[in-house]
Amino acid sequence: MQFSAREDIQAPIEAVFDMMADFERFERMAMRRGVDVRRTVEVPKPQVGACWTAVFSVRGKPRHVSIELSDYERPGVMRFVSVSKGMSGLTTIELLPLSPRHTRLSIEMSLAARTLPARLLLQSLKLGKSRFRRLFQLRLNEFAREMEERYFHGN
């Protein structure tokens, strides 16, 4: 299953990349939403090889995911590989400068099932794909507006 979303942000590409590479902020955001996130490989600064584990509930069952930063090319690309029991995923974040003060943020996610239970879960997710896409785009829009606010007001 693949889906993607993009959003234009009124901020320079370097500033947007720095905000996207603020992994500690993302960890705190996930924890506020009930996700147990832990770094498994500490790196002094964002770089390839950074790893996390996350535990969250999907349909009442705890899901354990390992996430690794597999590609980090400043200021344009970050890729994360995720692996869980029976499923794997790839998330690609790309930034494109539209002008010196505008950046296009594109996020593409793909999930692949490796076991029958994971295939059934993925199939049920596909049934709600259009709703999920709308929700994902809405959240990305909110996140882009938050990044603009942080850029203009230094939060």
Rank of each mutant, 00 (worst) to 15 (best):
L98G: 13
G60H: 05
V55Y: 03
A54G: 02
P62M: 05
G49Q: 03
S82L: 04
F56I: 04
V83D: 00
R74P: 07
G76E: 15
T92Q: 05
M78R: 05
G76R: 15
G76P: 14
E73A: 15
T91R: 05
V58N: 10
L69V: 10
H102D: 10
V48G: 09
G89K: 02
T103R: 03
S99I: 06
V55M: 10
V58C: 11
A112I: 07
T53V: 06
P100R: 06
G89T: 08
V83T: 03
V48F: 08
R104C: 09
S110H: 07
S66W: 03
G76L: 15
P100M: 11
G60M: 07
L105S: 01
S88L: 02
R74Y: 14
L96H: 15
I107P: 00
P62F: 04
R104P: 04
P97I: 14
V81I: 12
R74V: 14
A112L: 09
L90I: 08
G49R: 06
M109D: 08
E108A: 08
I93Q: 10
Q47H: 12
I93M: 12
P75G: 02
S99L: 10
R59F: 06
K85N: 11
A113H: 02
C51P: 04
A113L: 13
K85R: 13
Q47N: 09
I67C: 00
S66A: 13
E73W: 14
P100K: 11
S84H: 01
R101M: 14
P75V: 13
L98N: 06
I107Y: 01
V83Q: 00
I67N: 00
F80S: 02
V48C: 08
T103I: 10
V55S: 12
F56A: 07
I93C: 10
M109E: 14
L111D: 02
S70A: 11
E108C: 10
A54Q: 01
K85T: 13
Y72A: 10
V65C: 02
G89V: 05
A113V: 09
T53Q: 03
P75M: 06
G49K: 04
A113S: 11
